[in-house]
């Protein structure tokens, strides 16, 4: 049941019994307020911030050289003096490599999603807003890509184009365009059905103006939330491709690749071998939880 908001509906005739709250709260302000009350999302955000900043500023942190190998100090266990997290199979400092590895892994996770967001989002909004045969054309093409499981598609594209970071990025972008397009199309179709879009059309405004003013503000939120949840998938896929030897080439530090090269160490020092996996796990779960938290905070009928 609707509870009336505290306000006076008047034509200047009512005796004023209550005062209107002078400050008006916008949508994003209320979202921020809700996020502020959600500890899980806040913690995830903080962890991600820590991982991202340390990765970005890795060269300034005074870490050991992540490329410097040593045949003598291979596979030091965790907690060794000077090597907080031990060393890998070639004697490189694990801590330094994990931090530096974040640079590539995060880059490989975020970039394809961002590119796919730009392309898939535009296509989806165009399809959703135009409807009719434009929608049909775009969405049927997306369905073709959708028919392949994303892992398989990524592997086959990378395999066909050859190993390397650029090709991995390209393959992952192609993998993420269809799902983002589909989500964008469905939220846009929903928004297009609202009377305020009809009212805007009835005011004689052009399609681009209507999309910019009335559609974007209402669909960007849900699309971004969805894209955030894809970042974790992208990180895992990128790591997976590297693990299979289809992605980044050694000796670059990258979590997936590190997982691969530490494979042999699993019987010698299993904890050490699992560390890159732990990083992947933490990062992706943080992205996922944060995306859930954002969705909850934005999914409010004010």
């Amino acid at each position: 049941m609707a509870i009336q908001s505290p306000s006076l509906d008047i034509a200047g005739t009512a005796p004023l019994g209550a005062a209107l709250t002078p400050v008006s709260r916008g949508y994003w302000q209320s979202v921020r307020r809700r996020l502020g009350r959600d500890p899980v999302t806040l913690i995830c955000g903080a962890v991600l911030l820590l991982i991202v900043t340390s990765a970005v500023f890795a060269p300034l942190l005074g870490l050991a050289d992540p490329y410097k190998t040593s045949m003598i100090r291979r596979l030091y266990p965790l907690g060794s003096p000077n090597f907080l997290l031990g060393t890998d199979e070639l004697g490189r400092d694990m801590f330094s490599r994990l931090i530096y590895g974040g640079r590539l892994s995060l880059f490989m996770g975020v970039t394809p999603v961002a590119c796919a967001l730009l392309i898939g989002g535009s296509l989806g909004i165009a399809a959703g807003f135009s409807g009719g045969w434009v929608n049909m054309m775009i969405m049927r093409i997306m369905d073709v890509f959708y028919a392949f499981p994303s892992v398989l598609l990524a592997i086959s594209l990378s395999g066909a184009m050859g190993a390397g970071a650029e090709n991995t990025l390209l393959a992952l972008t192609l993998v993420f365009i269809p799902p983002i397009c589909r989500v964008s199309e469905s939220v846009t179709t929903q928004v297009r059905g609202f009377d305020f879009v009809d009212a805007a059309r009835a005011s004689g405004a052009g399609a681009l103006t209507i999309v910019r003013v009335h559609v974007l503000g209402n669909v960007l939120g849900p699309i971004l939330v969805y894209a955030t949840s894809l970042i974790s998938v992208a990180i895992i896929l990128a790591a997976g491709l590297s693990f299979l030897g289809l992605g980044v080439k050694p000796p670059e530090p990258e979590w997936g690749l590190m997982l691969n090269t530490l494979r042999q160490a699993i019987y010698v020092n299993p904890v050490l071998a699992a560390l890159p996996g732990v990083m992947i796990f933490i990062t992706s779960i943080c992205f996922n939880l944060m995306s859930d938290g954002l969705r909850a905070a934005m999914d409010v009928k004010a």
Binding site: Q4, L8, P15, A18
Partner: peptide
């Protein structure tokens, strides 16, 4: 009837209709 119903955030301490009532 001018005005709109009051906010129900607090337990009323007066007649809730008084602000809209011409006989208040």
């Amino acid at each position: 009837i001018p005005g709109a119903p009051p906010d129900l955030g607090e337990v009323p301490t007066a007649c809730s209709f008084a602000p809209r009532c011409k006989f208040a």
